[in-house]
Amino acid sequence: MSMYAAHLVSMLSIYVVLAASLNLVAGYGGMLSAAHVVLFGVGAYALACLTSILGWPFLIALPISIVAAGSLAFVVGSLCVRLSGDFFLLATLSVHVLLQAVFANWIPVTGGPYGIGGIASPSAFGWSADSSLEKAFFTAAAAGGSLAILGRLLRSPFVRSLQAIRDNAVAAGAVGKDPLRFRRRSFMIAGAFAGLAGALYASNIGYIDPHAFALDEFVFLLAVVVVGGAGDARGPVVGTLVLFLMPEGLRLLPITAAAAANARQVLFGLLLVLAMRVRPQGLVGRYGFN
């Protein structure tokens, strides 16, 4: 397998997990959270700081990064889940801006605009995933395990009631469900998975900077969830595959890299508008943001 293909497998694995976590809050929970990319970033920066700056082993840094992202998600969630749709998006957007500022300006910890480099590859008990192929195996395995756990959660009574709250919070209250409790917990869990994806990302690429966690990434992520299909476990997988591979075609066109990047973003934005207009439940989704 070529280096490029191995790298693609790693990236796909990471983004599927990230998209699946957004699917939990947005697709199953009906909460459009713009803070997701910075939660991904928190996981990445946490791992980077722990392994690169403090020199801690990967196996210890990984769970800590997950907990860091999950804890932040819990705090943000506790504050924000009481807000209705429009305002929830705005609030999470503010969280995004605030954390982006921290990533870009807290130089002693995050390295500021230059980021953190030299992040160690995933390693466990002496073995280290140094080559692209080893990284691909490890990341795919980690992603597979995460999706298995998440999949089980999605079939649980907890998520069933979460969906009920999404569909009609008042009626869910009338059958004894506290909407805030379910939303808070699912937001926290989703944040933890986003952090996991971030940690995998950091150790895969070896270098991170604030640009990787900009709002543009959120549009991509949202498009993945929406186009793939919200509210269905297969949605993130389908969406990631489609939206990763579709713009690859742009590489073949005789345009500059910057132009291709902008064109991708135009594509994702248009897909969101089109999806809501024509097929809000996406390709395999259950929930049409209704």
Binding site: P157, F158, Q163, A164, D167, N168, A171, A174, G176, K177
Partner: peptide, 22 residues
């Protein structure tokens, strides 16, 4: 005020499930 994106069975199951199992 049905849970429109859930099945009929799931609509009833939501009402039947106590919080410990959730």
């Amino acid at each position: 005020r049905l849970f429109e994106n859930l099945t009929v069975l799931e609509n009833v199951l939501v009402a039947l499930t106590p919080s410990e199992d959730e």
